[in-house]
């Protein structure tokens, strides 16, 4: 499986994501600068990393969503390639319209940086197939704007279609219906605020995030 990680000015989890992709696939990801207008040929999985792209100017992810490379990412998503956005990457994917809803300022105003318990709400997706139904996992979060918002109809639809991939199992940021990660309609795009790439090696204190990357690597074969 060939992978790519998008790099924006202000990305700071791009290397972490690249390490997780490489561990899962055995191949070095292509690092793709935001000004590129196309992705390397044969890429099956694209990571949109965490960080503070463009200093979070205007709204988190709003400027990055207008980058030339995001048009190529949207095309790849439409072709069924996997797109995985973490933290700021999730914000970018909602701002581009690849995922519904918006990420707002945390309900408690504070930046939240700690391990949180998550419940795996969908185990049928290519991202979550190695988790058990309703399994609780521990994954770190580090964000200021993680408060997921969508109107009630959209939330009902997401839940009805099994598109909520992860929920918080504790109070974190005020997200509607405790949503921590959502899938697009086709199931090939996932955005989530928690950082599975920061819990994929024994040295991280746990491996709960690793199965997401392993699942993707096996889905791509």
């Amino acid at each position: 499986m060939q992978t790519a990680v998008i790099v924006f000015p202000g990305s700071n989890c791009d290397r972490d994501l690249a390490v997780a992709f490489e561990q899962a696939t055995g191949k070095k990801p292509h690092m793709v600068w935001h000004q590129e207008t196309s992705l390397p040929a044969g890429v099956d999985l694209i990571g949109v990393p965490g960080g503070f792209s463009y200093g979070d100017y205007l709204r988190s992810g709003a400027m990055a969503a207008q980058s030339p490379v995001m048009r190529a990412v949207a095309d790849a998503a439409a072709q069924g390639r996997y797109v995985f956005g973490v933290c700021n990457g999730f914000q970018v994917l909602t701002e581009t319209g690849l995922l519904p809803g918006a990420l707002m300022r945390n309900a408690g105003i504070s930046f939240v940086c700690r391990d949180v318990r998550l419940k795996v709400a969908n185990t049928q997706s290519a991202f979550t197939s190695l988790y058990d139904a309703d399994e609780e996992i521990l994954v770190p979060v580090a964000h200021h704007d993680g408060n997921y918002f969508a109107d009630a109809d959209t939330l009902d639809r997401l839940e009805g279609e099994g598109r909520v991939a992860f929920r918080y199992a504790e109070q974190v940021n005020g997200s509607a219906r405790d949503i921590a990660g959502v899938l697009n309609e086709a199931g090939n795009v996932l955005g989530m605020m928690p950082h599975p790439e920061r819990r994929s090696e024994a040295a991280h204190g746990g491996l709960d995030g690793k199965r997401l990357f392993d699942a993707l690597a096996s889905a791509g074969r």
Binding site: L58, R59, A62, P100, G101, A102, M104, F149, D151
Partner: peptide, 8 residues
């Protein structure tokens, strides 16, 4: 397209 996010 940019200045406002009409979701919110």
């Amino acid at each position: 397209k940019l200045l406002a996010n009409t979701v919110i």
